[in-house]
Design a protein around this nucleic acid. Sequence first.
DNA 1: AGCTACATTTAGATCGTTCCAATCGAGACA
DNA 2: TGTCTCGATTGGAACGATCTAAATGTAGCT
Lengths: 350, 350
Amino acid sequence: MESNTPIRRKVTLTDIAASTGVSRATVSLVLRGSPLVNKLTRAKVEAELRRQGYVYNRAAANLRRRTSSSIALVLNELANPFFAEFAAGVDETLGEAGFVTLLGSTGESIEREQAVLASLIEHGPGGIILSPAEGSDAQQVLATVGAQTPLLLFNRELGGSLPEFAHWDRLMLDNQRGARLATEHLIAQGHKRIAFFGGHRDSSSCRQRHAGYVEAMTAAGLSMLPHWRVETAPTRLDAAHRCGELFTHEPAPTAAVCYNDAVALGLMLGLNQRGLQPGRDFAVTGFDDVAEAAFSTPALTTLATGPRERGRQAAQTILARLRDPQADTNFIVAPAQLVVRESSAPPRSL
Amino acid sequence: MESNTPIRRKVTLTDIAASTGVSRATVSLVLRGSPLVNKLTRAKVEAELRRQGYVYNRAAANLRRRTSSSIALVLNELANPFFAEFAAGVDETLGEAGFVTLLGSTGESIEREQAVLASLIEHGPGGIILSPAEGSDAQQVLATVGAQTPLLLFNRELGGSLPEFAHWDRLMLDNQRGARLATEHLIAQGHKRIAFFGGHRDSSSCRQRHAGYVEAMTAAGLSMLPHWRVETAPTRLDAAHRCGELFTHEPAPTAAVCYNDAVALGLMLGLNQRGLQPGRDFAVTGFDDVAEAAFSTPALTTLATGPRERGRQAAQTILARLRDPQADTNFIVAPAQLVVRESSAPPRSL
DNA sequence: AGCTACATTTAGATCGTTCCAATCGAGACA
DNA sequence: TGTCTCGATTGGAACGATCTAAATGTAGCT
């Protein structure tokens, strides 16, 4: 039987129409489950669709209907578990809505971000979810994606200013409040000499978290010494190396609010190497609640941001934007939730 | 100026043709950098393209040319750092080749896998990279993706048998050899009573790793006791819980080859809780070399599989397949490299 | 029979691009 | 002048779907 030959050209709607003796239009109606078509015709056509192994060509349909069934997801660092979780959440929700995720990873490079955006936009996504690379600029992004395609900014703000007509939605984490909560928690535990450890000053999220720390310290009337602010790469390794800098001058801190979990885990490593037991001799908090945080020794007090849930939220927001392009722009600030574990015990002296 | 109005309908090749006074065909030639067009016309058209902010509609082009510029990437668990790295590698290489990644995450559910594949295939990807969900079946996958679209199987084999005409490429990890290396390493360290810890018997990768362990043990003339084989969920938590089962009977093992890093880290946690210091009182090896392995205490001896590099390799393989659909099917087994760290010290008694 | 109402079907244009074959203009050559 | 090349350009069909407006057939009613 020729019909069983495994290798054959793609079967189209026209093929089905021809072999059932109805018009292309009718087959199209069947495909879309229209109530207009007669029961018998529908059955006949559907049988033929199955028999020939027809697969719908969504690209052709989208062309004609001038619609899109995809959303671009552009991430500065997919390999980071936080973003991987986020991506999983995005894809989950988009999938449920019948959309497909166009992935792009920029590796924190502005040039690659431009290239990736330019390439993705040619595939005509209905919208874009962008977690920009550090230092990415609003004007540039606008120039390559244009003003037609809705964009949702995640996690970071763009540099430069945006023309007022480009109303982009934003979904940010409440970095400042999160760091404030952590600091307040340490203060409540009885700590008075609290450091802010890790991260780079030119990262917007680091600045926000530091601001939250300052806010809490100031409100509690506590002072902050210069050597209590240590900058590091946001990695475990660099954090471990720089641990010593906290103890170069007197008085040494008894606790540290860390930029994120990676840094916090690195700091705990460094403390161990100096003979200090984190969670007993020195309190530590992180940010992100990565999977590891619950399993480290001691378990890490940190701020949960629910990356998967944020992904779902991002997807829902951009889908809502597609439904109503004229609606007011969203500016969502997702709260970070303090998860208290063992690494943030009261100071030794108490 | 109307031309500066930010919101306007998409500008097409026809618009450019109209306002430069050349035909659509010529504009198309310019877009594709054909040497046929005159220098002056090219310059004129290119200027107009920029002026109107034209963006290429790749979907329309693909429709006409009957080509594709996307590859579907379907992963059983995107949130797992191993697969996130893999995805980053895939996307990197595909991007360089001008392809776009269609992402699909199945969350280890066969039903979702079917749905995701069905949805992605409608977008007409040139090929599919699939890391199947546990228990996924060849016949079913074939039924939904058809025989036209090349498929590359990654990481796991499919259940059931495949009709001979569907020649799918495969990229697998050398699980057996990896586990054998780890076991041999422990034996060389002087261990004689070595357990195989973690994983489920119905996972193909677990079976392969166990086989490698058995191979090394048998070759060394070492015997294996039943209670030295403990099954767990492939998670840290379950591994930590089940640690005790290794010590229910005499003689207890002095070392364990673990299914993967998560399990190994969990086992180390469990050992600590029993007052045994991993790397001194008991040797442990993992599999995967997750970021954390290098930083745990003690640092974990494990097998590096280079997920990012595997991603690049998978992308290259499927791209090669697109170029030559008739070429022999690839069956690549990527080696796993033993990374010796502190967790695999010689036994206490030596 | 003539008319309307209703359910079902359909021809043909269309989306934005590419491909093919044909055309055009200008210079070369006999 | 007429024919031939050759470089540059182009009209129109095509890709696989959808949409619109119109056609078709059947039945009911007067």
